[in-house]
Design a protein around this nucleic acid. Structure first.
Lengths: 243, 243
DNA sequence: CGGCTTGTTGATCCTACTCAAGAGGTGTGG
DNA sequence: CCACACCTCTTGAGTAGGATCAACAAGCCG
């Protein structure tokens, strides 16, 4: 894990409108940059933080992707989130001031490190930043509710369809193709996230391909029939930025 | 839904240390009270807000209990939370300024209404309140993660055991018995919350009783063997205030 | 009392899990 | 350059846990 401590600029960051600076004036963005000028490069498989680490920073993803994982007392794990550029990691550690999950890079990635103590002080002075922090907290709660819905009721094919649509839409809102993308996570992580086994996920990918909903080749996914996929998902897809 | 608009006092509220005033000085509590002096009585079955309602207030539960429910596009529902006195409802609506869930009273209950716009301004001036709001957001994220773990991996009996222990501990932290309590929600709500059917939940209650883990009579639950129940739950119980 | 809601129990079925074998891809070292 | 180990992914066969369908009991309230 290299801490290159490079000065970063929010104003020319490609995901600024999905990240903390969203809704801030140029002046306020400048103040935010002074608090958050550290940039870190994280290699695939490395972790930003681990359970038990004291809470010091939030991390904003600049590029790459991460999984958030919690570990139960018996060592069992649960993937709770796949995070893409512009998203913040670490918010759940605030209340206990200790991380209870770990965030592992699914591919070589880079993040901005945001010392929360400083962010907190700045937010006290900049209402727009304050509101953006509330907004991100609240949005994360809303998204977790949708995952709950998925895990609570839905069949295996519905869950996978919903995940594919969700990821597709999130890539789209970041300027990438919504019809073809590369899943940065292995089948086991997808299965864990969806509350299924890797075998079931693999079978579903094969079946979706037979049904001409998608084309799969390893981690490369091409969406053929978005409508069909949406119907399968029952629109419980958490399509980002919409409703 | 009666808006009795009674002046309320946080300082003599029995759940103040679980609620927003936690960690605040007497002086700051007084300022908080001025923002939040409305009290509402909600009858069993009535809702605090519904999906589509604009976000104006947070609600702090004084007495009684609520369920939070989200509704999917196809009308399917998911109970995401059972809320007890001291807990805040409505946080997930901030980012969109519209409620996407509803909060229904499981029994006759009373709440404090907190106009968020005013709370936001006060928090800007009172860092301790600010921190308490972050803390509540963060804690809610952490709790949702634990539910995710439950729904994602665990067997039916583990889920129910974990819920019973969770509720038991939450009653205990509010000064009630942890070994005997009344479930304010019907079996269908428990089932929905746990991602099971009402029949399965009912069978599990019967089985737990046969195994001498609990004694059940309708909604009255008596915990006989807390340790056995904990083992079943695998300590994925979200025991409040601990870890 | 009678209608309604909530909860219990039984029988059967089906979805996704488990166990197992093998294919495809990648990186390392000889 | 090939051989080998290793890891991820796929596919198959059998199984089990929870869903579904259905009947009935127990409260509760007008």
């Amino acid at each position: 894990m290299i801490d290159s401590s490079v000065a970063v600029s929010c104003s020319n960051c490609s995901v600024r409108r999905l990240c903390l600076p969203a809704g801030l004036s140029l002046e306020d963005i400048a103040r935010l940059e002074q608090v958050t000028r550290k940039k870190k490069v994280i290699k695939a498989g490395e972790s930003l933080y681990r359970p038990g680490d004291s809470f010091q920073n939030l991390y904003a993803i600049r590029s790459g992707s991460f999984k958030s994982v919690i570990i139960a007392a018996d060592g069992d794990t649960q993937v709770t989130h796949f995070a893409l550029p512009g998203e913040l990691l670490g918010l759940d550690a605030y209340s206990k001031q200790v991380h209870s999950s770990y965030a592992e890079a699914l591919e070589d990635s880079s993040v901005c490190r945001l010392p929360f103590a400083q962010l907190e002080i700045l937010a006290q002075q900049v209402p727009a930043l304050q509101q953006q922090i509330y907004s991100i907290f609240s949005e994360e709660l809303r998204q977790e509710n949708e995952i709950l819905m998925l895990l609570g009721k839905r069949s295996a094919d519905t869950r996978l369809a919903a995940l594919l649509i969700n990821i597709s839409s999130r890539y789209a809102s970041r300027g990438y193709s919504h019809s073809e993308f590369i899943l940065s996570m292995p089948r086991t992580d997808i299965a864990n996230y969806l509350g299924l086994t890797a075998e079931t996920v693999s079978r579903l990918f094969s079946r979706f391909q037979r049904q001409n909903l998608i084309k799969v080749n390893g981690r490369v996914v091409q969406v053929i029939d978005l409508l069909g996929l949406s119907e399968l998902a029952g629109t419980h897809c958490g399509y980002e930025g919409e409703i």
